[in-house]
Design a protein around this nucleic acid. Structure first.
Length: 642
RNA sequence: GCCGGCUUAGCUCAGCAGGUAGAGCACCUGAUUUGUAAUCAGGCGGUCGCGGGUUCAAAUCCUGCAGCCGGCACCA
């Protein structure tokens, strides 16, 4: 006899050891039919799990939050079964549920192609229609290994071998197909429904290690119902429309071409956005007590041998050799250059903290497969800075950096920022006492601000702990942009020092920090975040003056000039075209404001202001329109200033 | 770098049982002077990514390379 406490607090008693299906049945036939799994004292498990002691039980149905992950996991299994029915000899490996769907990695001589997907999907639907009961079995480890080896599933056998001793090996059977799995699962394949779709094929290394064999992965998406599936597919289409590569072309911002893989050609409009960002950051940094420097892009190899980059990252660096056979490296980082500036002359503790910013363009020979529009390039500009300070000053400096980063992100509408703290890795330099101090200072800065952060144990750089700043964009994607790192490697290698009050030379603490990270990438993120509709202060063209007929031309010139004098980036469209066409074209270019000027406006010295995305117009006196637009075009750090 | 796919006019794409290229938009010209997301007509425009091969004949088949796209691995 066990007492089962249900979510509403009621308690029911059962003879023997009931399972979830029986409990659901006892509550009601409807629930029994829609039951997919249960939570047993908060842990998700199969409906068929017998309950041998008093417990809290909640029946999971398609409406439950837990259901989706369960269904996606089942979808992976059903796909694996479909694949093995259609392509005998294919080995199954791992197939988990993931965000929005699932995947399964298969081992196969000929990898799957897109053309295989419709067939597999059709077979999956067949398996769902068969409504095969999904049955959990516990197998002795040796038997399981033997079985999978016998049927040629060597990856599975390896997986079983890796299950810690003492843990139960569970097998899930659906029809005559079975798979090693921890579970839990739906009671039958029919419960999966048909709201799934196979999306793409991809290569993936066994166990995520590039030294291993490459498997053939199939990705799918799965939802509780057709409506959610359709909504997801629509969302993907919308996301595609805000792809910065597409918008970059449509808005004439930049391009890439074969001769310079991973390096952007910035067009006038795109460069305007880029420059506006740099100008903004420069003002913010000056206000925060930074000085700005600039260092050479091409420097002798020797410098990079000293810095350690030659040993560690040589393969990812660009080199150039001159007539005299001297080898230079194109800088992949700004820090060695910055250090050379610091090292000019003798620095006193009175010079510290010294905050040296550099908008440095760096080149890294990234693996070809990693390149992705502006998001991952081989040539990019960092909003870099190196802060040299004493150990005592460090915490305050870190805090100032964190405050600056968060404040700056807010200006772009990124209110949700996560901070990751990475502490000492196993392989590191420096003694533990120093690590203690550096980690404590970083942590202390965060704690004093009360900003939450997550811990990334052992993920710090070998030369020091670091913070990473992850922002979330308008459609919920996370981007890691800013970093703050403590470095006790380069200061040592380059023998950086300052004279302390005691008259002796001491090693300063060196902080590396970047807020946007890569200007190129940040621009790409902003384009996608705003779906191309950049706020007025960033928009490459802030206003277009469009005429209806020639009768508006003279006044349009006057409006254009006045707007330009007010500091706005403005274009005039006096073409002999219909206003519909002009509105359409400038709207597609995401110009935030269109000022229509016709005969009426010219006579009254007004403009008809139309906002991007809006269908309404506002008739304003010219002066009023200028004042309004000029105010709206102020960078966020200038709002409220005269 | 690895796996798969793709590469035809400025853009989006069609053409592929092999017979030396086509549409829409853009662009140019002309007409139209127009009131808030495409006015009409005409015209221009392509070494079919690059190299090699098969063939009487290759955009189409085979092959090498490059770039791009989707993943994986990588990201100082």
């Amino acid at each position: 006899m066990v007492a089962i406490t249900l979510p509403d607090g009621s308690v029911r008693t059962f003879e023997g050891s009931p399972n979830g299906a029986e409990i659901a049945q006892a509550i009601g036939a409807g629930l029994a039919k829609s039951a997919l799994a249960m939570t047993l004292d908060g842990t998700l498990c199969d409906l068929s799990t017998p309950i041998t002691r008093d417990a809290k039980v909640a029946i999971v149905t398609a409406k439950s939050v837990e259901a989706l992950e369960l269904m996606r996991h089942d979808a992976a299994h059903v796909m694996a079964q479909a694949v093995q029915e259609l392509y005998p000899g294919t080995q199954v490996t791992i197939g988990p549920a993931i965000e929005n769907g699932f995947y399964y990695d298969f081992a196969r001589d000929t990898p799957f192609t897109l053309d295989d997907l419709p067939k597999i999907e059709a077979r999956m639907k067949e398996i769902v229609a068969r409504d095969l009961p999904i049955v959990r079995e516990e197998w002795p480890r040796a038997k399981a290994i033997e079985h999978f080896k016998k049927i040629g599933e060597f990856y599975k056998a390896e997986l079983i071998g890796a299950i810690p001793a003492g843990e139960v090996v569970t097998i899930y059977r659906q029809g005559d197909w079975l798979d090693l799995c921890r579970g839990p699962h739906l009671p039958s394949t029919g419960k999966l429904g048909t709201a799934f779709k196979l999306m793409k094929v991809a290569g993936a290394y066994w166990r995520g290690d590039s030294k291993n064999a490459m498997l053939s992965r199939i990705y799918g998406t799965a939802w509780a119902n057709e409506k959610d599936l359709a909504a997801y597919l629509t969302m993907l289409e919308e996301a595609e429309k805000r792809d910065h590569r597409r918008l970059g072309r449509e808005m004439d911002l930049f391009h890439f071409q074969e001769e310079a893989p991973g390096a952007a050609f910035w067009h006038p409009k795109g460069w305007t956005v880029f420059r506006t960002l740099v100008d903004y950051m420069r003002r913010r940094q000056e206000a925060a007590g930074y000085v700005e420097i600039n260092t050479p892009e091409v420097m002798d190899r020797a410098l990079w041998v000293t810095s350690g980059h030659w040993d560690t990252f040589r393969e990812n660096m660009f080199f150039t050799q001159t007539e005299d056979e001297r080898v230079f490296a194109i800088k992949p980082m700004n820090c060695p250059g910055g250090i050379q500036v610091f090292k000019q002359g003798i620095k006193s503790y009175r010079d510290l903290p010294l905050r040296m910013a550099e908008f440095g363009k760096v080149h890294r020979y990234e693996p070809s497969g990693a390149l992705h529009g502006l998001m991952r390039v081989r040539a990019f500009t960092q909003d870099d800075a190196h802060i040299f300070c004493t150990l005592d000053e460090m915490e305050a400096e870190c805090r100032q950096v964190v405050e600056l980063i968060l404040d700056i992100y807010k200006d772009f509408g990124f209110d949700s920022v996560r901070i990751k703290f990475s502490d000492r890795p196993a392989k590191r330099i420096g003694d533990d006492a120093t690590w203690d101090k550096l980690e404590a200072a970083l942590k202390g800065a965060l704690d004093h601000m009360g900003h939450p952060y997550t811990l990334n144990p052992g993920e710090g750089a070998f030369y020091g702990p670091k913070l990473e700043f992850v922002l979330r964009d308008a459609i919920g994607r996370d981007w890691q942009c800013g970093t703050l790192q403590v470095d006790m490697n380069l200061t040592e290698r380059f023998d950086v020092n300052y004279v302390a009050p005691d008259g002796a030379k001491h090693r300063p603490v060196m902080l590396h920090r970047a807020l946007f990270g890569s200007l190129e990438r940040f621009t790409g993120i902003l384009i996608e975040h705003y779906a191309g509709r950049l706020p007025a202060w960033l928009a490459p063209v802030q206003a277009v003056v469009a005429t209806i007929t020639q009768e508006g031309d003279d006044f349009a010139r006057e409006v254009e000039t006045a707007l330009r004098r007010a500091g706005l980036r403005v274009e005039a469209d006096r073409r002999n075209e219909k206003i519909d066409l002009k509105v359409r074209e400038h709207s597609l270019k995401k110009v935030p404001a269109i000022l229509v000027v016709g005969k009426r406006e010219a006579e009254n010295r007004t403009v008809a202001l139309r906002r991007l995305g809006g269908a309404k117009q506002e008739i304003l006196a010219l002066d009023q329109a200028i004042a309004t637009l000029a105010r709206e075009a102020l960078p966020p750090d200038r709002v409220g200033t005269p």
